[in-house]
Design a protein around this nucleic acid. Structure first.
Lengths: 224, 224
DNA sequence: TAGTACAGTGTACGAAGTACGGTGTACGAA
DNA sequence: TTCGTACACCGTACTTCGTACACTGTACTA
């Protein structure tokens, strides 16, 4: 078939939901959700647009499946170590995964029913907290708090217009500071200057808040 | 003109960027971002689709403007009261505003350049923290932490499929529990049961984490 | 050999964003 | 009074989107 040969990015092994969803991830990583269309996805797979509908009922279902793959990539909290270390590891993993799939954050708002990997993840996290001695209520609080922090951090990180410290410095000088008259925005100028001087690492920034939250949660568990 | 009379939802006072953006907010609140198209928006304003392009350069710019209006609605931290109270008030306000415009969260990921209201807001928050005695670095940390929590909470809240305690109870019984075999998801079952029994108020849940964060930040400020 | 199931496709429809080239009205200058 | 110009607005058309529907060819069973 001509379509088969036309675009050879993906190897020809027959389609499958897995392959469709995996290629959709790659496409979204490369071009953003906006660049992910059924036609382009089909083309990347060397197939016709309508063929995809043998594996996903609709684009919505495809997006749901993509989100769930993202959750699959996040490390589950280990039962072998203390709860703080376990939650720190899984949260760091979550941030890293979300940072590598920035489109996922924007998608979550519209996806209301959690997929299986999402459920497994929540179960494992709740289990970790409950076994550490948190009551049901406190575990719920801790869950909301930690997840809010992780998702919110990823959201802010995704909306930063730079990825490296160099880009930050350039953007700050060329784009931000001209927008920030020092008399109107004295504190933002101060911050910007400090940021450029000190460099910037989102992973470090993330750890600061995370450890602060974990430490604040510690006294709330009934030490079984 | 016929278009003028055809749709009368909005009063006929001539278009303006303000009016266009305000109506876009209303439309998005009612139908979600997905329901916001230039044609539908124009129709709601009693105008033709292309007329909108006299006030916004593109749909992207419209979305940017919408986000900035959302930031305008958030209460700025007051300089009159102690920093914790000020930050609590503005954070509660932010959550309420974001909850009333759920589409805003999903939009933020893709909007990389902050609007004027956004900048004013950041300036005011940073000012509040700096005046409370936080160093530049600590103020940055606190900013990231608080904003992450607020945005992440709003994101999770937006992706909840229910709005009231009643709906929660119904959804849990009819949709969630059937998906959660108790042997595979013991802790989620436990949580769900407790949640239905205790009822659920996102505003309360929000306050819990917020106060925990504020308390944890307190010792980090150099008491000027 | 005929029948059936399945994987994949081609065409078509309605809706989206928006480029382009209008049209009507208001208003200042001659 | 007339004309020129600027502005607000619109109709049409092009491209791309999601996807309904009817179709192909192949493989396997009876």
């Amino acid at each position: 078939m001509s379509a088969r040969e036309q675009s050879q990015v993906a190897s020809d092994a027959g389609l499958s939901k897995q392959r469709v969803v995996a290629e959709a991830l790659r496409l979204a990583d490369r071009e953003g959700v906006h660049g992910l269309s059924m036609r382009r996805l089909a083309n990347a797979l060397g197939a016709g647009a309508m063929s995809l509908y043998h594996y996903v009922a609709s684009k919505e279902e495809l997006l749901d499946a993509m989100i769930d793959v993202v959750f699959e990539e996040i490390e589950l909290p280990s039962a072998e170590i203390d709860w703080q270390s376990a939650m720190r590891r899984r949260s760091v993993s979550a941030r890293r995964v979300l940072a590598s799939h920035p489109w996922a954050i924007g998608l979550m708002e519209s996806r209301t029913s959690p997929g299986p990997a999402n459920l497994r993840h929540r179960e494992a996290v709740t289990a970790c907290l409950r076994r550490a001695g948190f009551t049901v209520l406190m575990a719920t609080h801790a869950n909301w708090l930690l997840d809010s922090y992780v998702y919110g951090f990823a959201l802010q990180e995704a909306s930063l217009p730079f990825k490296t410290a160099d880009e930050l410095a350039n953007m700050t000088e060329d784009v931000y500071l001209p927008q920030l008259p020092p008399d109107e925005f004295p504190y933002l100028n101060e911050s910007a200057a400090a940021l450029v001087a000190a460099g910037y690492d989102p992973a470090e920034e993330f750890i600061f808040g995370l450890d602060l939250i974990l430490a604040a949660l510690e006294p709330l568990r009934a030490s079984a």
